[in-house]
Simulated assay, not measured.
Amino acid sequence: MPPDPHADELRSPPEPFSSRRPTWDDVGRVADLLAAAERTRTGVVATRAEDVRVRWLMLDGLEDVVLVEEPGPEPVLVGVGEYSTELDLLDEATVVHVEGQVHPAATGRGIATHLLDLAETRARSAAAEEGAETAIVRTTVIDGDDRARAWFSTRGFVPVRHLLTMRLSLDEPPRPPTWPEGITTRRFRPGRDEVRAWTAHSAAFADVPTHFPLTLEEWVEDRILRDPAFDPSLTQLACDPDGEVVGLAFCRAGVEGAPEEGWVRDLGVVPAWRGRGLGMALLLDALGTFRTRGLTGAALDVDDVTIGPAVRLYERAGLRIVRRIDVVERLTSTG
């Protein structure tokens, strides 16, 4: 087993607690802790053990997770922190993202501060390795958790982004799409449509402030090669009379924690074709395809940059907001 690059994290929890790395046998215990927090916050439990397992698989390894336990004949899990480090190309900064949770019965005992301190330490270390003077510590606050929002605010965190999750039950078939005159549609053809789809995607999202332009090779790597859920038959292209792609919907069957749902990853229309109903037609087509596949629901995320017009479009198709997440962050100095 390779050495733990963050071993010092296990030596400094507040008394009388102890810290350790998890094993895969801890997935259920962590899911129970998260469920207890959700139950206290909103009364609704959404997290399942499989959600925890999927998140951990997306980390570099279990050395990116810290468990905090209260000692006893059978140690009680009272806190969990999950960490990831990346280079944010938009901010041109090193970012350490932390997702932490303390059991409701153990709040106010220094555990949350400890988990945040670990993120700060990682951020300073990562920035130093890059030769940078500052780094960003970033986390998310889920709707209903006003206490956490206030806690992060007192520690200098400011909101920088908001995300909405919207869902729709597919118990009833959606209405059929009405395509604008002159539009033809087809499914994505691997090996033939990459350039056309990339060109349309770049044009459709060029005016979104958070969009980071990708080269063709980078886009293919991100949207197709590295996405295990990419399915050409769930990727719809809308073409104008000249055969140019002017709208597209990248979708997948199954999402984290909800394999029975369809997910709309990207829905875009190039500027010249906006305002003609093409976006709605692409969305309704995706919903109908999901139902034909036997999926029982559909979901998507909306960024705060497009919350106004996008939410109105999705609500007209029947989707409803089910969750809001605020992204908050703080600048950390290496000095």
Rank of each mutant, 00 (worst) to 15 (best):
G297N: 04
V102T: 15
D301T: 12
F157M: 10
P5G: 10
G110K: 06
G277L: 00
T121C: 06
L10V: 00
G254R: 03
L287W: 04
G275C: 04
A132E: 09
L278D: 05
R21M: 04
R316L: 10
A197S: 02
A258P: 03
R226F: 07
D145C: 06
P13G: 08
R274W: 10
Y314P: 00
L313H: 03
G43Y: 09
A93R: 11
V160D: 00
V327I: 14
L234M: 08
L118C: 05
M166H: 10
E92R: 14
G72A: 08
G288S: 06
L214C: 02
A128T: 10
H103K: 06
R324P: 01
V78R: 13
G100C: 15
Q236G: 03
T121D: 15
P213D: 03
V96K: 00
E217A: 15
G279K: 01
I142G: 04
V245H: 00
G191M: 08
V220C: 00
R20P: 05
P241S: 04
V44T: 13
E82T: 15
A123C: 12
L59W: 08
V45H: 01
D240I: 03
P309N: 05
V208F: 02
S12Q: 14
L77H: 08
C239F: 02
T235Q: 01
V255F: 08
A253N: 06
S153E: 15
V208G: 02
R189P: 05
P71S: 07
W151I: 07
A298M: 05
L87D: 10
L248C: 14
A119T: 15
G131H: 14
R109S: 07
P180N: 06
V98E: 12
G294C: 15
L248Y: 14
G318N: 12
G100H: 14
G279H: 00
D303N: 09
T306P: 05
G275L: 01
G275E: 11
R320I: 09
A46P: 01
S19D: 13
R293A: 05
R41K: 08
I142R: 05
H162V: 13
A310E: 14
P16N: 01
G335K: 07
V95K: 14
T289W: 12
L282A: 03
V95H: 13
L90G: 14
A49R: 08
A258N: 04
W24S: 05
E50G: 07
R20F: 09
F290H: 05
V328L: 14
R109E: 02
L214K: 05
I183K: 13
R265K: 13
T178K: 04
I224R: 01
E172T: 15
R276W: 07
F290E: 01
T332D: 05
L214P: 00
W273P: 00
I321N: 06
A35Y: 04
L319I: 01
F157L: 14
A112V: 06
W198V: 06
T134H: 11
P174C: 01
P104G: 08
E218V: 04
G257L: 03
V208Y: 02
V302C: 11
T47M: 12
D304N: 09
L170D: 04
A37L: 03
R226N: 15
A37D: 03
A299H: 11
A123S: 09
D8K: 11
L168K: 05
G288W: 02
F212I: 15
V52F: 02
R265F: 02
R29F: 10
G156M: 12
A150Y: 13
G288R: 03
E70Q: 15
L116K: 01
E194A: 12
A229C: 08
V65N: 02
P241F: 00
T134N: 10
